[in-house]
């Protein structure tokens, strides 16, 4: 380009303009191809998942590895507690009354409250509902309070 002092010539101005256009033009396809990296379709497991028939759920606490939840049954009442640590997503396991996380040592009480370690929030309770065929459904994308209970009297 022109040295300091010499005024730009028509040629140098055109060269800069053309070069800039070329660079801008190259950004177009780059952006278009890069957009492919943002997934449009996700082949991920659904958040609403079938748990099974209420009668198949044992009394007390059951860990369901496939769902990442603990099912809590007290006679006819059902609840589901997430087993995914609210810190960085490791799966907690039952330890005495409550739950412990193997990754950074968070501990949770039986009601999901975070009582020790780096976990910032309690383990969330997941809402349960009944499908038309009578099966239990857990919604892993929603959260309810520990007091929300699904009561099933028929076929439990």
């Amino acid at each position: 380009m022109s040295d300091a002092g010499t005024p730009p010539t028509r040629r140098s101005v055109l060269a800069v303009a053309a070069g800039s256009c070329a660079c801008l033009g190259a950004l177009g396809p780059l952006g278009a191809f890069g957009a492919g990296l943002v997934p449009r379709v996700r082949y991920e497991p659904p958040l609403r998942r079938k748990v099974g028939r209420p009668s198949e759920v044992a009394e007390g606490l059951t860990f369901r590895a496939d769902l990442g939840v603990f099912l809590v049954r007290k006679e006819t009442s059902f609840r589901a507690l997430s087993a995914v640590c609210t810190h960085l997503g490791c799966t907690v396991s039952q330890e005495g009354e409550g739950f412990h996380c193997p990754c950074h040592g968070s501990a949770f009480a039986a009601d999901g409250r975070n009582v020790a370690g780096p976990a910032p929030r309690p383990l969330p309770w997941r809402p349960l509902s009944l499908a038309a065929d009578g099966a239990l459904i857990v919604d892993l994308g929603a959260e309810v309070g520990p007091e929300a209970v699904l009561t099933v009297t028929e076929g439990a």
Binding site: A65, D66, G68, A83, C90, T91, S93, C101, P102, C103
Partner: peptide
């Protein structure tokens, strides 16, 4: 890999 079980300690 088993997404439901975390090794202890991880």
């Amino acid at each position: 890999a088993d997404p439901s079980r975390t090794p202890n300690p991880a």
